[in-house]
Structure formats: structure tokens, C-alpha cells
Simulated scan of single mutants.
Amino acid sequence: MSPTTTMTIRPAASDDTPREGSAVHTHGFLHARTVRGTAQSVRHCPEGDAITDPYVLLGIHSVGRAALVRRGITEVCLPGDLFACDGAEPFVLDEEGGFELHLVRIPRRVLTLTDRQVRDLGGRAPFADGTVAPLLGPLLRDVAGARSGDPSRTALRLAGAVADLVGLLAVEDAGSGTRDGGQDREALIGRLCAYVDANLWDRNLTPASVAEAQHISIRYLHKLFEGRGSTVGRWIQHRRLEEARRELARPGRDDITVSAVARRWGFASATHFSRSFRAAYGMSPSDWRDGRTRPVEACATVCP
């Protein structure tokens, strides 16, 4: 196939006016673009913001068949096939004919995923089967097709639902095919994570207490999480923030205080919680609870 033209996907410049054949929408912390065209190459070219504000780029075709080239590997991408890429890595989609492509950008800071899980997710072949992909794929198409301007609270909850599904997608069948004790290690990590989840409320939850509860050394505990590209402390922080985010977004909880949520999920103080929440999600806990968003840039500009 010889593409007739080439489009390059880059982070948005100050002029964010959508080009012909594309549409850009923002929903909470999600940035979505739909691109339509004829046979051509669509290239993702990461730039500075992929390092300063890392993200995962999710893609799905409503129409068209393409060859997805990333990490030196070429894979067929059919309509309905979902693929994910680390925003810091380039990729090319060689579109064979007329196509409609949806791209949704989600910040790494809102995903409770380790560096290794993001790398693994970005290397998995396009898929439409399984438990999560059939739910996430149609949702991404709806997000990309919906115009910006939904009520802030609705947009934030929609973005949160996408983040939750991406997290599930990353761990679905991630441990299959392990050898030489790999399955035992994955089972132990599963128990460790379950223990952490059950004790997030405890301010004294530390790597030492987790290791003691599971009858392993702290050194081995850190080694297990190093193999997944994370640390125990970082995982505990991620999980606390994620549960706090969910509680603040629940319907009918407008009167809940930030201090109460901070206490419930084991944060040392409301100040520490607010600072950590803003660093992770780009807004304060009260803004998230009340459905207020701050101005954000769109995810990409399609350049001829």
C-alpha cells in the first residue's frame, strides 16, 4: 500500500483550531481526537510534553484497516481493534483506504499503573476480545464523538470511568505465560496488593508492615515491586488517591469534606492529601468533588 499523503500527530500548539478532517474534544482530563481521511500514513511524533506530563494514547478505528508499526513490529489493526501506546514512543498507522480513527489521550498521573505495566500495555497487539476491551472500545468511540461542553461533573466521571477501565485492561492476563516461578511471584504480588487495599485507611501502613503481614523481608518486598517498575510506597499512594477520587465523585456526596476523605484513606493531613491529589490529577480535591475543571490544552494537532 502506498499512502497518498502523510499526517503527523503532535502535541497541540497555541493555535488549537482543528484541521480539516479532524475534530478535537476535551472531557475532564481526557483529550480526544477523531481523524478521517483516505489512504495515508498517520504518525505520532512525541515531543517535550510526553516527558514533562507523560500520557497513554489509546486508539480505535470505526472504519478502515491499518498497519500499526511500533517498536519495529508491524501488526494489523482492524475496525474495533483497540490499541494503546506510551505517549513517549513514536508509532505509525499506515491506513489502507478510507478511515475514521479515534485517539484518546489520558495522563499517566491518573492511572494506577507502574512504569512496567505501561510499557507492557504499549507493546500488546491490538485487541477486541477479552473482558475489558469490548467495554472500553465503544466508550472511547463515544468519548471521541461527543462534543466538549458536557456538565463538568459528568465529564469528570466519564474520564474516571475510562481511567478505571484502562487500569483493568493493563492487568488483564498480564501474568499469563510466566515461567520459572513467575506465577508464584504474581500470586504473591496479588496478595500484597490485596492486603494494601484492605488497609489503605491505616496511616501506619508502610512497606515494613506489609512485609511483616506477608511474612517476607522488606528487601524481597522492594525487589518484587522493582520488577514491576514501581515501589511499595508509590503503590500505596496511588491506591489511596484512586479510592479518594472515587469517593469524591460519588453522587450525593456534595457535602463530604476533603478532610474527612483524607482521614478515611490514611493521609497524614488534609494538606498532604490536597497537595498529592493536585500533583496526581491536576486539580484540587474540592474542584474534583464539585465538578469544576481548569482550562487544558487539546491532545494533538494533525499536521499535513
Rank of each mutant, 00 (worst) to 15 (best):
L101W: 14
L103P: 00
V104G: 02
R105T: 13
I106L: 10
P107Y: 00
P107R: 00
R108F: 07
R109A: 15
R109P: 05
V110Y: 02
V110W: 02
L111M: 05
L111R: 00
T112C: 15
T112D: 15
L113E: 01
L113Y: 03
L113Q: 01
R116D: 13
V118Q: 01
V118Y: 01
R119W: 09
R119C: 03
R119Q: 14
D120G: 00
D120L: 15
L121Y: 04
A125Q: 11
A125E: 11
A125D: 07
F127G: 14
F127P: 00
A128C: 12
A128L: 05
D129I: 00
D129M: 06
G130Y: 04
T131I: 12
T131M: 12
T131F: 08
T131N: 07
V132Q: 06
A133E: 02
P134M: 09
L135K: 11
L136A: 06
L136R: 01
G137Y: 01
P138A: 11
L139R: 11
L139A: 14
L139D: 03
R141N: 03
R141K: 13
A144N: 04
A144R: 05
A146Y: 12
A146E: 14
R147Q: 14
S148T: 15
G149Q: 08
G149I: 08
D150I: 00
P151G: 04
T154I: 11
A155H: 02
A155E: 11
A155D: 09
L156R: 06
R157T: 10
R157D: 08
L158R: 14
G160Q: 13
A161E: 11
A161P: 00
V162Y: 03
V162W: 03
D164Q: 11
L165Q: 06
G167A: 00
G167V: 00
L169A: 12
L169H: 04
A170M: 07
V171D: 10
E172I: 04
E172G: 02
D173F: 11
G175M: 02
G175E: 13
G175H: 13
S176K: 12
R179H: 13
G181M: 05
G182H: 05
G182N: 07
G182Y: 03
G182D: 08
Q183A: 15
Q183H: 11
D184H: 09
D184S: 13
D184F: 03
D184W: 02
R185I: 15
E186N: 10
A187T: 10
A187R: 12
R191L: 15
L192R: 01
L192F: 02
L192Q: 03
C193D: 15
C193R: 14
C193L: 15
Y195P: 04
V196L: 11
V196S: 03
V196E: 08
L200G: 03
W201A: 15
D202R: 13
D202N: 15
R203N: 06
R203H: 08
R203F: 01
R203W: 00
N204T: 15
N204W: 07
P207A: 04
A211D: 05
E212F: 06
E212V: 09
E212L: 14
E212G: 05
Q214A: 14
H215C: 12
I216G: 02
S217H: 09
S217R: 09
S217K: 07
